[in-house]
Each structure stands twice: as structure tokens, then as C-alpha cells.
Simulated assay, not measured.
Amino acid sequence: MSAFNKDADWLDWHPSPSKPKFVVPNGAVDAHCHVFGPGAEFPFAPQRKYTPCDASKKQLWALRDYLGFSRNVVVQATCHGADNRALVDALLASNGLARGVATVSEDVTDTELDALHQAGVRGVRFNFVKRLVDALPFDSLKRIAARIKELNWHIVIYFEGQELPELYDFFTSLPTTVVVDHMGRPDVTKPLDGPEFSLFLKLMRENENFWSKVSCPERISVAGPSKHYVDVIPFARTVVEQFSQRVLWGTDWPHPNMKTHMPDDGQLVDIIPLIAPTTELQQKLLISNPMRLYWPEQSIKS
């Protein structure tokens, strides 16, 4: 029995996702997913903005195998704050098939950073979505960035499209590889060539240290699952085709804080050939790029 109560309006992950029609290539990486708790073993952060369902490492590995993936990148979610114990537990149990993105505070010690690295952490996440976190000052984030650069880690940034103008200069000052979550959550009701998404494309084009995940259509789409998130596809395909060496894809399982619908993970996989329509692009998106970023010692040049 869990020692907490899940938010009443927060949906549980899909209990029986469909088997994807698209067969992912051998060695494919789900480069954005999470573990939550179990809450009785790994308590959630007191300052969290939501309380999720349990989503264990064993359930994540089972989904990985069912969908046909080989590896995972597990991203620390805001509900666990800077307590990375659930993340580390999953990485240590993965037999080298998972890497991690942690959340750390400015007072993290070198010993703690080294332990995270040994467990398989290769990046830190900076979250700028105001409804999910209380913003940290830029100076503090810059000090964290300078320290993790020494480990050759990267920074993952999560923000929403309308916030990019005020964050642009800070983002481009970061000294590491930077990975943008979910294309910066563009407003897909606005034109593909409009000023908002054009600024994101400029960020990618003019800063070769920037990568992007082309994931989470369920969070971005207005059309929704019944129309196969069709309104997101042109945005994601544009990013994949223009920046094929710097894109990643992930399920986002167990889809934190979803309140309108819970996506079918099999349906999400079936969107991949629509945004990466060639075998070459699929190879880069699912294998070459994530291996280069998270398992460089095992990667081969695409």
C-alpha cells in the first residue's frame, strides 16, 4: 500500500498499450522516460506540484521490451525534486541499458556528482515550466552548469514556446551540450513558419551544441489521439529533417501530469515514421544520436 495519495485528476499510465505497427530498429533507445517511486520506498518531494501514480523500473523495462526498444534514458521528474534515489536505483538495476538525467541543487557535492556519474547519469535537467517548479535564479543554474561541464554532462531544458524570447540569451550562454525537451512545446495552432517556432529553429540552427527531443505529441497536440496528433507532425518532421544529427525521441512514459487523456504508447511509436520518414533518419533519431550522447564509448558514427 503506497504511503501517499495520487492527485485525483492525474491519470494513470495506459494499462494495455497497443503493439506498434512500426517495428523500431534493433538497438533503438527510448530517450525520455521516467520512474516514479514506488512512493513507499522513494518518497516524493515535499515541494512537488503534483503527486503521481507509482511507475516502477520493472514496469518501465516491461514497456521497453513490449515496444521493441533496447535502452532507456530515464529523466528525473519534478515530483522527486533533487532526490535522485529512485533514478539511481533504476540505473543500477538496468545492466547498463539505461542512462540518466538528474536534478541537482547548487550545494551538491563533488562526491555526490561522482556517484551519480558512476550510476550512469550523463546530464542535469533545468525546468522552466512555471506550473511545475519554482524558478531558480540564472546565477545558480550557471554555477551548476560550470560544474557538470567538467564531467562532460549535458543540460536538458524544459520550457514552453512562448517563454523562449525571455530565456534565449540565458540558454545560449550555457557552456555544454543542451537538449531541449519536446521542441520547447510549440503552440501548434500557430503557423509552422510563424515567429514563435521560427525562433526555436533559429536557436537550433545558430547553436550547434543544441539538440531537441521530438517527443510528447500528446502534450502539444490540439487535434488529439483520435486524429493521431496530426497537427504536431509537421513541426517534429521539420526539426528531424533540418537537424538530423541532433534529435532524440522518447515515450515520456508514464506521461506525468496528464489530465485530458492517457496516450497509447504503441500509437506514439507509430508516429515515428511520420516524423522520420526514411530508414536513415530513423537510425539517427533512435540509435546513432542517443548512443553518441549517452553511450559514447559504445557508439558508432552515423
Rank of each mutant, 00 (worst) to 15 (best):
L248T: 00
I220D: 02
R219I: 09
S244C: 15
A223V: 00
G250F: 03
E241A: 12
D231Y: 04
P234I: 11
V230M: 01
V239R: 01
P234R: 02
V230L: 03
G224H: 01
L248R: 04
V240K: 00
T251V: 04
Q242I: 02
D252Q: 07
S215N: 08
P217D: 10
I233L: 15
V240T: 09
D252T: 02
T238H: 05
K227D: 15
P217A: 05
E218F: 15
Q245K: 13
F243W: 11
I233E: 14
L248Q: 05
L248E: 05
V232S: 12
L248W: 09
R237A: 11
A223G: 00
V239D: 03
F235K: 05
R246V: 00
V232K: 00
T251L: 14
L248H: 07
V240G: 07
A236Y: 13
P225M: 04
Q242C: 12
S215D: 09
H228F: 06
I220S: 03
G224R: 00
P217Y: 05
S244D: 15
H228R: 07
S221Q: 01
C216V: 15
I233Y: 12
H228E: 12
A223Q: 07
H228L: 03
P225S: 11
E241V: 00
F235E: 10
Q245F: 13
D231H: 04
I233P: 14
G224D: 02
I220F: 02
V222K: 14
E218H: 13
I233S: 11
I233D: 11
P225I: 01
V232C: 15
Q245P: 02
T238C: 12
T238Q: 11
F235N: 10
I220K: 01
R237P: 05
W249T: 10
F243M: 09
I220T: 09
P234V: 12
V230H: 01
T251C: 07
P234N: 04
W249M: 10
V214M: 12
V247D: 07
S226Q: 14
V232W: 06
V240C: 13
R237K: 15
A236C: 11
A223P: 00
V239K: 00
A223E: 10
F235W: 06
S244G: 11
E241T: 07
V214D: 14
G224M: 01
F235T: 13
V247W: 06
A236L: 07
S226N: 14
S244T: 10
S226G: 03
C216P: 09
T238Y: 00
V230A: 12
S244N: 15
R246I: 00
D252Y: 07
T251G: 11
E241S: 14
A223K: 08
H228C: 02
